[in-house]
Amino acid sequence: MALLNILNFPDPRLRTKAKQVTDFNKKICELTDNMFLTMYAAPGIGLAATQVNVHQRIITIDISEEKNQPLVVINPTILEKEGEQATDEGCLSLPGIYEPVKRYDKIRLKAQDKHGKFYELDTEGLLSVCIQHEMDHLEGKLFVDYLSEMKRNRIRKKLAKALKA
């Protein structure tokens, strides 16, 4: 097990579109284990493989306070969606930035676990937001893309400054 390096905005590699996972081998299990380790250490509640420079459709999530409800989401698709909610989102690739983003309130998710087994999941609230946020990563999209140009520039400058210091 090893901690992985998380890419930071505006790293262009974060814009890569991830590929479907077709071969569920030992490497996938190893990767998800490392992703959980990295995510818990950050600390974060969700991590997409894109953020650790692996461009496959793999996500790890755990929104519980006790860090005891790990969820592996591979090759996800949203089957149904309804409602709308806006919560302040943050991202491990943009440390310290929190901005409200509009998302679907409830989604029905279809995905595979780390062994390739299909499952469906009805979610709402934070978990639903987190899944949508991570699925954006797999498309090369970041939550700041939903903000205005002005806000995004300000965040870019803020992060650059923080990096220098």
Binding site: G44, I45, L47, G90, L92, V129, E134
Partner: peptide, 8 residues
């Protein structure tokens, strides 16, 4: 995703 560490 990172949850906002809401300062109390």
């Amino acid at each position: 995703m990172q949850k906002q560490n809401t300062k109390k």
